[in-house]
Amino acid sequence: MTPGLLLLTDSRLPAGSHAHSGGMEQAVKEGLVHDLASLESFLAGRLRTAGAVAAGFASQACAGHDPVELDAELDARTASPAQREAARTQGRLLLRVARRIWPSPALEELAGRLPSPHHPIALGVTAAVVGATPREAGAAAAYHAVTGPATAAVRLLGLDPVAVHRVLATLDLPSPDGLPAASAPLLDLLAERHRRSPVRLFVS
């Protein structure tokens, strides 16, 4: 494993993810997530839907597949405009910090073609730049899909952060092979309701 990958998956990477909850804020507000057990099942559901899709695309992007084509495919897998917006905002911010941390032709080319790529695309291309394998890029994307929401739950519900990390440690990572399209109707609903909420702490 390359050190770059560790930096890329560190939640302290200053790429704006701390302000995204991946539907968690709305799920908490609607009472769907209220304790450790409901958190675990939310995260497991997110991992095998949004996480699996992100993992597949990050690994393909890392493997050198055309990012513009992947980006259009991700659009088709993200029916919710709120989720597309959150994914593109996070992708844009990640791409911006990655270009400054790891200047490289690949990242410049990506920024030239897609200034606001879906996050898994930015992550996959950056992973390739730091020397990670497609499989590692996929794992990083899957983790990203659940660590943000988990941290948000710690903040929103005052859950024991150690217990939440134990939940994260026991989740099964999806395989990043192929390009799944697993959807999660409730995540769409939560995202759209969250975007319309006048009172919110997180961007998504």
Binding site: R12, L13, P14, A15, G16, S17, H18, A19, H20, S21, T89, R92, L93, R96, V97, A152, R155, L156, R200, L201, F202, V203
Partner: peptide
Amino acid sequence: AVETGCCPHTAIRDDIAANVD
């Protein structure tokens, strides 16, 4: 307006990405 995910100081000091954006 920028949302700060419960951590206003993070957004101006540790992870300034959304503000720079």
